[in-house]
Structure formats: structure tokens, C-alpha cells
């Protein structure tokens, strides 16, 4: 039985600082196996920083959008989705707490 030749791949590295923290992208590295990638990730990116968990993902397994899509994200007015678009409510509440709305006031 012959030894199997391993190919090197680029891995993207993410680290989670605590259980509640999001996994944050650190950098990338070159490794011949996920095990090697995890060891290198620890040695290269987590010599000082503490981590709860480290992820390594082969770069060619990541599906991502590019610069063209980046523009699409900020094209539209989205205030209807955000509290920003409802700021006028505060003023209404202030007014109606002082002078409650009555049926008479309506036309």
C-alpha cells in the first residue's frame, strides 16, 4: 500500500473569543490538512489573543459575493426597515400624553 500524497490548500481562519462572540476572520494560511491548518492557525494568529474556538475553512469551499454585489447592498432607502424611519413617534407620544386624543378632536 503506497503513502497518499497530500495537496496543499489555502484555509481561511476564524476565531471566536468566547462562547457568545462571533467567529471573526483572522487571516489565511497554507496547509496540507485541516489538522495542520489548525496547528498553524494557533501558532500564527493566536499567540497572544485568547480564543474559545478556532475554525479553519478551505478557501475553495467558501461561496462569497464580490464588489459588484457590494454596491447592490446600499442602493435602496431602507428606513422602513429601521427604527430610524419611526423616530417621529416619540414626538407623537409626548403630545398625546399631555393631551390625549379624543373622538371630538377628530374631523
Amino acid at each position: 500500500m503506497a503513502d497518499e500524497r497530500l495537496e496543499y490548500h489555502i484555509y481561511e481562519v476564524f476565531a471566536q473569543e468566547s462562547q457568545m462572540a462571533p467567529a471573526v476572520h483572522q487571516f489565511s494560511l497554507l496547509a496540507s490538512s485541516p489538522d495542520m491548518a489548525l496547528i498553524l492557525a494557533k501558532e500564527n494568529f493566536l499567540r497572544r489573543q485568547k480564543a474559545w474556538s478556532v475554525w479553519v475553512v478551505r478557501r475553495d469551499h467558501i461561496h462569497r459575493t464580490g464588489p459588484a454585489e457590494a454596491e447592490m447592498f446600499d442602493r435602496m432607502d431602507k428606513t422602513y426597515r429601521e427604527t430610524e424611519g419611526y423616530r417621529y413617534l416619540k414626538e407623537k407620544w409626548r403630545r398625546y400624553k399631555q393631551e390625549p386624543l379624543t373622538a371630538q378632536g377628530m374631523t
Binding site: M1, A2, D3, E4, R5, L6, E7, Y8, S33, M36
Partner: peptide
């Protein structure tokens, strides 16, 4: 070593 996976019987 890092670029080979040893065959296991």
C-alpha cells in the same frame, strides 16, 4: 511528512 498521509494496514 506534512505532505504525505501514511498508508495504514
Amino acid at each position: 511528512v506534512l505532505s504525505t498521509r501514511a498508508a495504514v494496514a
